[in-house]
Amino acid sequence: MISPTALTRRAAPVLACIGLLAVWQVASLVLKNDSFPTAIEAIRAVPDILGDKEALINILASLRRMAMGFGVAVLFSIPLGLLMGRSRAVAAFFNPLLMVIYPVPKAALMPIIMLWLGVGDVTKTLVIFLGVSLPVIYHSFEGAKAVEEKMLWSGAAMGLSPLQRLVRIVLPAALPEILTGCRTGLVLALITMITSEMIARQSGAGNILFNALDMGQYDTVFAMIIIVGAMGICLDAIFERIRARLVRWSEPQFDMPLSFS
């Protein structure tokens, strides 16, 4: 049984989506602009894109690269962040470098990396990897730093070696914070993917968007926006489900994505 309040809470995002689409519909009817189709027209164009085999293959290839880049970045960033959080020397070593990298627009590296590695999957995955790494490192670092010293001492008294303490105490204790970083990283992976495809204009979802724009297929442009937006919202919602399951034990957190760094 779902209580009425829980029902409204679950329905609220759906209502918000419908509301936003309604605002769009009204705005486009009022503006009567040729290049601004109504929400209904855009939604009608969605099945056309997803039914188009080439477009679908393109989008799936994008998603595969995104998953690769995200996965490698997470596997690389969590251990680094945890080490930085537990060792002042490691933190002092990496912090300035990361601070310098932080404001570099990662997707903007696309043309340069293309110059070296070509336009293949490696380049695109590498750019996504760069985009995802920083927030995951940062949150793992913060999470590891906040682990209570006495908890580690308790573990040490039970005979855990330093490495065991890192894996069996610091990692789980920092998990809520790590997953917050991963959630930010996931959205950033999608953003970096789309942006780099818009810049390189070779293939993928970002490319479909601008091709349609250049050819004046405005329905397709807006339909693609709906598809990409839905991807972002779904990925975030799925990840939030997983996160909530994994850290059921932790004190309830602020349930909005707080960090975008």
């Binding site: 995002p13 724009l213 990925l235």
Partner: peptide, 16 residues
Amino acid sequence: PIVRVLAPLPKVALYP
């Protein structure tokens, strides 16, 4: 709910 929906949306897709 509006923020919940719009925050994870890749804004760059809105650029076109």
